[in-house]
């Protein structure tokens, strides 16, 4: 017969993960923390500067601008992608041959790597050879993302919407599909309008997946780097220099390791803080629906 035994083998199983995390996350992070409190004049000579870099950063107009740009960008992205994603999901067929067609065409953009998306749009939008840019120019619309900050922003936003709305669509669609038919039938019988059905059935039932969608899109857009980098490299001027681009410019371009380290830590903390807020909201909502279901 089976005897109860204390089993410590499990710890060995966890060890590889420990090591992996140590090398890939903890040690690099500690190096960054180390850099952020020191300065160097090259040749591997470091000296302690305390909180200087952080203080500078907090007063740096460049950082403020990048931060505001980043917030503005993420807000615009969420404001467009979430409603648009829900709208497309609502419009998608629920059965028949249309389902696989829609699902596949929706997942296609998600399969394309970031820099390829950037390159596609970079060429697509060029006034000389790009289909979009040339067409717009010939229609008399003044569009040139290399010169006009607004055009550059629009290009990057449209590109991101094109690339990532599908994710919101797929998540929303999954949420919609999980609503039993009886709900729609009951709503019909109760005489609910289309808007009421959305407001009182679909939206509450999609709440869980929508929060995941918002979280994912927020974090992703907050960390955007490749696309603006490929298209304009953060220009024209500094108009599309988001935090990650600014960070790379500082670290790799100017080789200001100390300030860059401080900035990346602050950047990291901001994302951590926002993710924590989302997580708390999400788990609270989850808890509520669990109690209701019990």
């Amino acid at each position: 017969m089976i005897q109860k035994q204390v089993n410590q083998k499990a710890w060995f199983m966890v060890l590889p993960v420990f090591l992996l995390v140590a090398f890939s996350a903890v040690i690099p992070l500690m190096t960054v923390v180390n850099y952020s409190f020191q300065d160097t004049f090259g040749s591997n000579q470091f000296f302690w500067v305390g909180m200087d870099w952080f203080r500078d950063l907090m007063h740096s107009e460049r950082f403020h601008d990048a931060f505001l740009r980043q917030i503005a960008f993420s807000s615009i992205i969420l404001a467009i992608e979430i409603p648009l994603g829900i709208a497309i999901a609502l419009a998608m067929p629920r059965k028949g041959w249309g389902v696989p067609v829609c699902l596949i065409s929706m997942s296609l953009p998600l399969l394309i790597p970031w820099n390829v998306v950037g390159t596609i749009w970079q060429i697509f939008g060029r006034v000389d050879i790009g289909l979009l840019g040339h067409s717009l120019a010939s229609m008399g619309i003044d569009y040139n993302y290399t010169q006009d900050p607004i055009a550059a922003w629009i290009t990057i936003i449209v590109m991101d919407v094109w690339h990532w709305t599908s994710l919101v669509v797929l998540l929303s669609y999954a949420g919609l599909c999980s609503i039993p038919d009886a709900y729609y039938q009951a709503a019909k019988i109760d005489g609910a309008s289309r808007i009421a059905v959305f407001r009182y059935i679909q939206l509450p039932k999609m709440q869980g997946v929508l929060l995941i969608a918002v979280l994912l899109r927020f974090m992703d857009s907050f960390m955007i780097y490749t696309e603006p980098f490929v298209i304009t490299g953060g220009g024209p001027g500094n108009s599309t220099t988001f935090m990650s681009i600014d960070l790379v410019k500082m670290a790799v371009g100017q080789f200001d390791l100390g300030p860059a380290a401080a900035m990346s830590l602050v950047y990291f903390l901001i994302i951590l803080l926002l993710s924590w807020i989302f997580y708390t909201v999400m788990s609270n909502v989850g808890e509520e629906s669990k109690n209701g279901g019990a």
Partner: peptide
């Protein structure tokens, strides 16, 4: 307890 033995910590696969 199962058949007189304490099986409290034993995983389901082993029962």
């Amino acid at each position: 307890h199962f058949g007189g033995n304490d099986v409290t910590g034993v995983a389901v696969q082993k029962r």
